[in-house]
Design a protein around this nucleic acid. Structure first.
Length: 568
RNA sequence: GGGCCGGUAGCUCAGUCUGGCAGAGCGACGGACUCUUAAUCCGUCGGUCGCGUGUUCAAAUCGCGCCCGGCCCGCCA
């Protein structure tokens, strides 16, 4: 209520830049460089400060509601990075992951993924069967692909596959299985013993909580849907009475069937805000990373519920920012999704793991078009770690030392990396020997590299080629071996190519052939560039490509001669 | 209505917690390898650190107030 503070000042008060020397000129330049602080170390510090019992338990979890995309992997990888740091420090760590598969299906996904990670439209599966199951737990819905025990099972499997593909050991727990085994009975009894207390805490976060609210949702014995109307509680019997009423889910209403019945604690679920803390207690969770969506609602209420309803200390939290895909939020309905399996067709697992060592507090974009930059970054970190590249400063060196061993499965000094973009270019030929030859000639594979290292290095070519094709960028060269591009040449160009064909026929080597390009250009009064471009058109249907002389010398002579003479 | 993240070189970003030389990669430009392209090597180019203001000997960095971009919560999970 103060007066306007923004009173314009009378003048600009241009204090003359002080001409006063401070005299104290020699601030030491020594170790002034601040060190690198790894976020996972800070989290690990906080976890250690709680003096947790071993093994330390790190949890994550999602609903298996549909395509488990790369964004969901945060939930696994952020915990993993911290787990690795704690293991380095000598702790025993177990990483558990709940598949919250008793949650109800509340809307039809537009797209699904089969077990191979192929995205399919809802229309390609039995959508009607799904529609009839709105409101039912994921584990009670048949798998639309028919390959798993249930809808929930199907997508839990994909999540587990993602973790495995990244070589992250997690124990996936089915929430439904936990309920069915009675693991949540105590928590449910605690909540229902004092529904008023539960209400009081939750009412601070949610307006709709009234005196009738009971924090337990039975599964209707008749229609199988999760219901919200509990009419009586029998703690001794471990049951509730309920009526199957309509459920509002934002934009639509799922009809209740009106059935009235009795359900045990194992035949229902806690609402999320109670379920989450109940999981912490049940599993003894010490640390849980979660997305920013939970930061304002679920976490603050969960923290309070843990202490005031269940009476235990909640785990160490960590909020991570969501990242985007190609500049847009992940959205399976809009088709902006990518699965781990798909990413691993483009980059090595260690590169993807490296991505998740970056500061989780920052928003980031996972940009397929620039994935080469991510790979370059990883390669550089690796070389700094292995000592073959000098870091720009202490910060970069420390970061490499800290992060690299976590990203990579095993540190091996002799590892060879072909630069990603160069690997993409190598994809122009299918011939493995030719790829290896070119890579060696260009100095990307040392002569003394062990066999396994060469093999792994060349494996990048397939990935980079897929990337070049997928993005159809300037590295997407392809040798047009089977069909000759339609190329218009003038007389001089045709004659020049004829001469080149002769040179190839007479057995010119790479160096010789490369020089021959200049010779024939001179001979036919052409710019060297024109001859090269003619060659690129003929072999790649493009205007640029590899060093042609060297490249053509590696191909089979007969084909090259035929093509240069435009005979096929 | 509330909250979070970002704005630093043409591009992608590091650096901000802990104030002290404004950095990397890519790029562009020039050159070298008989060499057009990719690669490699050498060199050059690159920035009012979103704006304003306060604190300080000193601010990209700390405080306050804005602007712009993105997202999240206020149903459920």
């Amino acid at each position: 209520m103060s007066a306007d503070a923004n009173v314009p000042s009378g003048d600009d008060d241009p204090t003359p830049i002080d001409a006063v020397e401070t005299g104290d000129r020699d601030h030491e330049r020594d170790g002034g460089g601040r060190g690198f602080v790894f976020w996972a170390d800070e989290v690990a510090d906080r976890i250690e400060a709680r003096d947790p019992s071993e093994p330390i338990t790190i949890k994550g979890g999602i609903s298996p509601s549909g395509v488990p995309h790369l964004g969901n992997v945060n939930e696994i990888m952020r915990g993993y990075v911290v787990a690795e740091v704690l293991r380095e420090r000598g702790h025993e760590v177990e990483q558990v992951f709940t598949s919250d598969d008793r949650d109800p299906l509340r809307k039809l996904p537009r797209r699904l993924a089969d077990l191979d990670g192929e995205i399919v439209d809802l229309g390609d599966v039995n959508a009607g069967a799904l529609g009839r199951n709105l409101g039912a737990p994921y584990t009670a819905i048949p798998d639309p692909f028919g390959c798993c025990d249930s809808y929930g099972d199907h997508f839990s499997t994909l999540i587990a596959d993602s973790a495995e593909a990244l070589d992250v050991p997690i124990e996936v727990l089915s929430n439904t299985a936990l309920y069915e085994a009675g693991e949540f009975d105590d928590a449910i009894a605690d909540v229902l013993k004092r529904p008023d207390r539960a209400r009081d805490v939750l009412a601070e976060f949610q307006d709709k909580v009234d005196d009738e609210y009971v924090p337990f949702n039975p599964i209707c014995g008749d229609c199988g849907k999760i219901t919200e109307t509990v009419t009586a509680i029998d703690l001794n019997a471990g049951t509730v009475e309920y009526r199957c009423t309509d459920i509002e889910t934002g934009d639509r209403t799922i009809d209740g069937c009106g059935h009235e019945g009795t359900a045990t604690f194992r035949e229902g679920k806690l609402p999320w805000r109670f379920e989450w803390p109940a999981q912490w207690r049940l599993l003894g969770v010490d640390f849980e990373p979660f997305g920013k969506d939970h930061a304002e609602g679920s976490w603050p209420s969960g923290e309070r519920i843990a202490r005031e309803v269940f009476g235990f200390e909640p785990p160490e939290p960590m909020v991570y920012e969501w990242f985007t895909l190609d500049g847009e939020p992940f959205s399976s309905s809009a088709g902006n999704v990518i699965l781990v399996s798909e990413v691993l067709e483009l980059i090595e697992p260690e590169v993807l793991r490296y991505f998740f060592t970056k500061d989780p507090g920052r928003g980031r974009d996972f940009d397929i078009g620039r994935i080469d930059g991510l790979v370059d970054e990883f390669d550089r970190i690796e070389r700094i770690y292995l000592g073959s590249v000098d870091p720009a400063d202490d910060h970069e060196r420390e970061r490499a030392e800290r992060v690299y061993p976590i990203a990579v499965d095993e540190v091996r000094e002799e590892r060879v990396r072909i630069p990603y973009r160069f690997a993409a270019v190598l994809g122009m030929t299918d011939d493995p020997a030719l790829r290896a030859e070119i890579a060696r000639r260009e100095g990307h594979v040392p002569d003394d590299a062990p066999e396994w290292a060469v093999e792994e290095a060349l494996a990048r070519v397939e990935r980079a080629r897929r990337w070049a094709r997928r993005t159809d960028n300037e590295y997407n060269y392809e040798l047009k071996r089977t069909s000759m591009p339609d190329v218009a040449l003038d007389e001089a160009e045709a004659a020049a190519l004829e001469d080149l064909a002769d040179a190839v026929e007479s057995g010119a080597d790479g160096e010789g052939l490369q020089g021959e390009f200049y010779e024939v250009a001179r001979r036919h009064d052409l710019e060297p560039r024109e001859v090269f471009v003619a060659g690129y058109r003929l072999f790649f249907d493009d205007e640029q490509g590899p060093r042609l002389g060297h490249f053509l010398a590696e191909l089979d002579r007969e084909f090259v001669v035929r093509r240069l003479r435009r005979e096929g």
